[in-house]
Design a protein around this nucleic acid. Sequence first.
DNA 1: TATTGTTATACTCTATAACTATA
DNA 2: TATAGTTATAGAGTATAACAATA
Lengths: 152, 152
Amino acid sequence: MTSMQPAPNEAEVSPANAMVDALVQLSFRVHEVLGKIGAEQDLSVAQIRMLGVLRDREPSMLALAGHLGLDKSSTTGLVSRAEKRGLVQRARDPHDGRSFTVSLTSRGRALVNACARGVEREIDGLVAPLSDHARRQLVSHVSEILAPRRDG
Amino acid sequence: MTSMQPAPNEAEVSPANAMVDALVQLSFRVHEVLGKIGAEQDLSVAQIRMLGVLRDREPSMLALAGHLGLDKSSTTGLVSRAEKRGLVQRARDPHDGRSFTVSLTSRGRALVNACARGVEREIDGLVAPLSDHARRQLVSHVSEILAPRRDG
DNA sequence: TATTGTTATACTCTATAACTATA
DNA sequence: TATAGTTATAGAGTATAACAATA
């Protein structure tokens, strides 16, 4: 990757449709940002996403799997690797001996906050070409798209 | 950018940023769509993306790696798995004995076209809540974000 | 020597199925 | 029996480093 240009993301799956083209390419672009910022902290996109979910929640393993749209076994691995690094912790649920709650450690919170700042910086740069008005429209439209679905 | 708070203590850093939230969530939502449509054809997002790139190109392995932002060794695996399924083919470059060109087979093309139709259907559904005017604005703004920077 | 591509290796991520412990 | 979670297993995806063949 030394001599290669970052090459605009050409992941168009439907070049005839401008909306598809725009959203798919934007999606890859944002993922690229998440990957880059995560890499600075040695975090995968999956880990960043999980830590992001845990910012505002202390869910059970099963609820966490639901938030992430993953199988419970995948979530076990994700949480275990993060726990090994001291980013999250499992705590027994006193009301159900089968269940755990997952939560950020202070180190995990610091890390996800650092990532959030980095992502914010990058996204701000990404939308820099837009006017304030256009930015507000963009947020409004995207929020409307996402509204019916309340995912993590 | 617009709203600023006197950065609270480390405990609760970085106030919610609507733009970041919107774009990151949208990115995951679109990836979810790609994953779902791909799964119908037994294709991963990475495979769909590669096939999408090959729709309009017959690059060398190295050029393909550049387009995808991956290491050449990762691309070897990606192409080899697709080749094993008869979706792409390697052909020796007559001008450089070290190089191959990668291209879609007719089966690969049929598959990526089917995916494109599926993705278009899903994205159309996603933006259905928006008015025609809002959709045009959205495409315009996103295109501006993704546009190659003319003169820095 | 430099470049193109593959291989060897190691890791993360993911799902399915089987399992344990608790309800 | 049913549920929460883990383990076993398999495979894809990714990067780094070492390698082969060609330039």
